[in-house]
Amino acid sequence: MAKGYMYILECSDNSYYTGSTRDIERRLRQHMEGTGANHTAKRLPVTLLYYEEYDRIDHAFYREKQVQGWSRKKKEALMDGNVELLPGLAKKIFNKHKRK
């Protein structure tokens, strides 16, 4: 049985909320009741779009933090199962100093 979940919700304003929890059913109830998070409380109702199960909560939390930093397009590729697109959707970091 899973001991942790990373999940993505869609809010009423079409924004995404990424979180992690040990009990996904209880956490979803909290979000729907407006007590889950400030972001979701102001954007009810929410819909569960995606989740991943982990053996340990710290792995789910690590994955939450990873996915939170992703662009909307990259999250959508993950949710659609298009994992081959993920590397190409990574944020590009440019060095301000040119090489000589």
Rank of each mutant, 00 (worst) to 15 (best):
Glu10Tyr: 03
Ser12Pro: 01
Ser12His: 06
Cys11Ser: 12
Thr21Leu: 08
Val46Asn: 04
Asn38Ala: 14
Ile57Met: 07
His31Lys: 14
Leu28Met: 15
Ser71Leu: 03
Glu84Thr: 13
Lys73Glu: 09
Lys73Asn: 06
Ile8Gly: 02
Ala60Thr: 00
Leu78Tyr: 01
Thr47Phe: 11
Gln68Met: 08
Thr40Glu: 04
Met6Asp: 00
Leu49Gly: 01
Ala41Pro: 03
Met6Ser: 03
Glu64Pro: 09
Val83Glu: 12
Ile57Asp: 00
Gln30Phe: 12
Gln66Met: 14
Gln66Ser: 05
Ala41Leu: 00
Ala77Asn: 02
Tyr62Arg: 15
Glu53Val: 08
Val67Tyr: 02
Arg63Asp: 06
Leu86Ser: 05
Pro45Trp: 02
Ala41Asn: 08
His39Gln: 15
Asp55Pro: 07
Arg43Ser: 04
Glu25Tyr: 14
Gly34Gln: 12
Arg63Phe: 01
His59Met: 10
Glu25Ile: 14
Tyr7Thr: 09
Ser12Asp: 05
Arg56Met: 02
Tyr5Asn: 02
Pro87Arg: 03
Ser12Leu: 04
Tyr7Lys: 05
Tyr17Ile: 13
Arg43Asp: 00
Ile8Phe: 05
Tyr5His: 09
Thr18Cys: 15
Leu86Asn: 02
Lys73Gly: 09
Tyr7Arg: 05
Thr47Asn: 10
Leu85Ser: 11
Arg56His: 05
Asn38Ile: 12
Tyr51Pro: 04
Leu9Val: 06
Val67Ser: 02
Gly69Ala: 03
Gly81Arg: 09
Leu86Ile: 13
Thr47Met: 07
Ile24Phe: 09
Arg43Pro: 03
Glu53Phe: 01
Tyr62Thr: 12
Glu52Asn: 04
Ala60Leu: 00
Arg43Leu: 05
Arg43Ala: 04
Leu48Ala: 04
Gly81Tyr: 07
Leu85Gly: 04
Pro87Met: 03
Thr47Trp: 11
Ala41Ser: 09
His39Asp: 07
Thr47His: 12
Tyr5Phe: 12
Leu86Glu: 06
Glu25Gly: 15
Ser71Phe: 01
Tyr16Asn: 14
His59Trp: 00
His39Lys: 15
Lys42Val: 13
Leu44Glu: 00
Glu10Lys: 13
Gly4Arg: 07
Arg56Lys: 10
Glu84Cys: 11
Val67Asp: 00
Met6Gln: 04
Ala37Gln: 13
Leu78Lys: 03
Thr47Tyr: 11
Lys75Ile: 03
Lys75Ser: 01
His39Ser: 15
Asp55Tyr: 06
Ser15His: 09
Asn82Gly: 07
Val83Ser: 13
Glu10Asn: 06
Glu53Ile: 07
Gln66His: 10
Asp23Glu: 11
Thr18Gln: 06
Val83Tyr: 14
Thr40Ala: 06
Tyr7Gln: 05
Thr40Asn: 03
Ile24Asn: 03
Tyr50Gln: 00
Lys75Leu: 01
Leu44Trp: 03
Asn82Ile: 05
Arg26Tyr: 14
Glu33Ile: 08
Gly34Glu: 09
Ile57Glu: 05
Ile57Gly: 00
Ser71Thr: 02
Ala41Glu: 03
Glu76Met: 14
Tyr16Ser: 12
Lys42Tyr: 06
Ser20Asp: 11
Tyr50Arg: 01
Ser20Gln: 12
Arg22Pro: 04
Asn38Lys: 13
Ala41Tyr: 00
Glu25His: 15
